[in-house]
Structure formats: structure tokens, C-alpha cells
Design a protein around this nucleic acid. Structure first.
Lengths: 210, 210
DNA sequence: TAGATTGTTAATCGATTAACAATC
DNA sequence: TAGATTGTTAATCGATTAACAATC
């Protein structure tokens, strides 16, 4: 039951633990030891125990970990299943892909709106929602109070859209544009750089021949 | 001019350096010191110099770094601009989004084919390519010898498609499905877990209120 | 109880930062 | 040359691993 600040490196491992626990539940495995899990995940049992103990003792000596309980605890730490209202801004291919991302609902996020400034798109269906005009987003936000905005807009629009959303009360931005948004007081920014990932793949591919 | 093995943590910083150098060139800045760059990027100058020196001395005492040269060197380390032939498997929204990803071409990857097993999609245009039938992929690969495959297929199909592609000679897989592909001898796998990123955002949002 | 496995402390390893001599 | 800034070594810091006592 530690109160030390959680190192970033530990926090960033949580989603992966969560996925593996998901998997175990799907396979109806309800109990696991740190050493079994370490074999599955390719990390050390020591690291697993250290990591979990940043958040308190989830295990039991002589027994191991209860998968359901651990899954629930880590889900809670990650803030899942709290029904965060989420909107998507930008209904291009990426916006569509993200709207249809099934894990989304499964993780307890509530998609409540999709917006685009292209009048031709407004009114069309995306997943089970209707695309709304970006012009009306201020009213929508003040009425529905969503927390999270997913930005799938062209890079030229990102900065101004982000500023607008933040001024309207959005608390977290998941940004898929190449343009990196800077950290801000009281707003969570998560920049996804798909091209970084592709460059790493390329790097590893290059290294393969050495 | 070191020959030490490059730590993973250093390699994973390269794409970010590359992006910042891109930016500098766009702003017509052709010379920069480690301390200026450190201010821009929010890292220490020491780290920047250490990182670059894993790959050899790119700078000049008393002067700093030549941005164009550094950009080119890091690009080469990342294996960019080598015209790697790339195919996309799965022409859903995500496949479309990735095909239209402009950075893609800009980084020197050549998109040479898009495949889907849905006959209704075959023949349609995506970016400047025509969607081909997945049934013909073996012939295509043996003829064109692409290196990289981007997998944007449903999770149920990932494992079998990946195995098939590898057996046909694909050297690298950029996998967007939830199902994680395991490392393999002589094949580069890069798993993109979008939901991990969303979970981290959620975690940080949760932590905001503490 | 005996066996198993955690929680936690201590040891090791590696990464980051600081400092400065080399040199453009 | 004098000033600036790198490349690199040494010091510090933090993360990972090992070990084991606590305990279910």
C-alpha cells in the first residue's frame, strides 16, 4: 500500500497488463501467479510484482493473483468504465475508423457526438450517430459536457480546434494529427504519432540486414 | 564513432528528433545547438548529445549541428527514403485513412498495393491505387517483392493473414489489430495499440482530479 | 502444517545528467 | 586568438532484478 508517485514507465505498462488480463478472462483463467504471467508477457515476475505494488497489494501469498479482481483494479486505476463522454471531431476515414473501433465501447467510453465542418457530411450516419455540424459544437458541449475529444482533423486545423475545444471545457484531447499539441494546465493531451511507429518499423527493418 | 549497441530507449527517440528537424527545416533554420534544441523539445542538451553520439559525431565544436545534415543522417538511420515497397491489407476505414496518410509518401515509403477480400470493394479506388482481391496477393508479392505490409484487417483474420504474408516473403508487418503478433525470426513486427493510448489518456484524466 | 508465492528490501544494472577537456 | 559548443568521461539517479522473510 505505497503512496510513492507512480513512475511514468510503470503507468505506461498498465494498458498492456490490462489487455493480458482481458485475455486470461476470455480464456476463463481466474487465477495466475506473477511467474506464469511473466512467461506469457515476456517480462520478469519481479517487475510484475513491483509494478502492482505501486498501487497496493493485489495478490495473496501462496496463491497468486485473482484475475478478475486484478482486472477490475487496473481498470479502475486506468479510469475505465466511468462512462466518460467522448466526441470525435473530424469525420474523415480516420474519424470513421475510430468511431467503429469496438474496444472503445468495451472500455467504457461513451461516444456521444461526431462533428465535421463539411456540410456535405453533416447528417450522415457514422456508427449509430449522426454527424453534426462543427458550427454547433459550442452548444453541444455546454449541454452535454463531454470530457474527451478525439481530434481527427487536418493538421492545419488542429491548433485552432484544440484551443476552441479547451475553451469550451473539454478536459482531454486524443490528437491524431501530425502537429503536436503542447501540454497545458488541467488539460490532458495525448498525441498519437502514427508515423513515429512506422519509422521505428523502418529502423528495425534496416537493422535486420546488419 | 561508437560501436556500442544502440539502446532501445535511444532508438525510440529518433523519430521525434526527426520530426523536430523537419520542423526546423520548414522554418528555414539550418543550424542549431544541442541547448537550443533541448529547449524546444523539453529534454536535456546532454541527452541529445549522448543520443547523437551513439551514431557518430554529427556536430562541430563551437558551432553546433547542421540541421540539413543531421536530418539526413537520422533519416538514413531510420531507413527512410529507401523506397520500401508497401502494401495495405484491409480496405476498411482504417485502411483508407492509412493510405491517405500524407506523411507516408513524404517519408519515402512507396504504397504499391491495397488488398481486401470483400469482392464489393475490389476495383474501387483508394488514394491513386485500385483495391485488389486478396486472393491474388501471392502472385502480386512474388512479382513485386514488397517489404512492408500494413495490416488493417479484423482481429479474427490477423493471425492467418500475417502467417500467409510472412510465408510469401513480407519482411515487416505494421499491425493495427487488437491481436498482438509475436516477434519472429527475421521478420519485423510493429504492433500499434490505439486502445493503449486511449487508456493512458484516461489514466491521466483520472489523475488530474487527485 | 508444508508448500507456494507474494510483498518488500537490497543489489545490480542501465540511463540520464553534469562537468569539462578537446577543438572548431 | 577567444568564444562557443561539441564529444566524452565521470557522477548521479532511477529502474530492474534478485533474494528472502512474511504469510496465506
Amino acid at each position: 500500500m505505497k503512496e510513492r508517485k507512480v513512475p511514468d514507465v510503470v503507468a505506461r505498462r498498465l494498458p498492456r497488463y490490462y489487455r493480458y488480463l482481458d485475455d486470461l478472462l476470455k480464456k476463463q483463467i481466474y487465477r495466475i501467479s506473477s511467474s506464469e504471467l511473466s512467461r506469457k508477457m515476456g517480462v520478469t515476475a519481479s517487475q510484475i510484482r513491483q509494478d502492482f505494488n505501486f498501487f497496493g497489494g493485489f495478490g495473496q501469498q501462496g496463491y497468486g493473483y485473482n484475475v478478475e479482481m486484478l482486472h477490475k483494479e487496473i481498470g479502475a486505476i486506468l479510469g475505465l468504465y466511468s462512462g466518460r463522454k467522448t466526441i470525435i471531431v473530424g469525420a474523415g476515414y480516420l474519424g470513421h475508423a475510430l468511431a467503429n473501433h469496438t474496444n472503445f465501447k468495451k472500455r467504457g467510453f461513451m461516444l456521444v457526438g461526431v462533428f465535421d465542418n463539411d456540410k456535405a457530411k453533416v447528417g450522415r450516419k457514422i456508427s449509430d450517430l449522426t454527424i453534426s455540424d462543427y458550427d454547433g459544437i459550442a452548444d453541444f458541449i455546454s449541454e452535454n459536457q463531454p470530457d474527451i475529444a478525439i481530434l481527427a482533423v487536418p493538421r492545419t486545423a488542429v491548433k485552432s480546434v484544440a484551443e476552441n475545444l479547451i475553451s469550451l471545457g473539454i478536459k482531454a484531447i486524443w490528437n491524431f494529427s501530425y502537429t503536436e499539441l503542447d501540454e497545458q494546465e488541467n488539460v490532458v493531451i495525448e498525441n498519437v504519432h502514427l508515423s513515429d511507429s512506422l519509422m521505428m518499423l523502418s529502423y528495425k527493418l534496416n537493422a535486420l540486414d546488419d
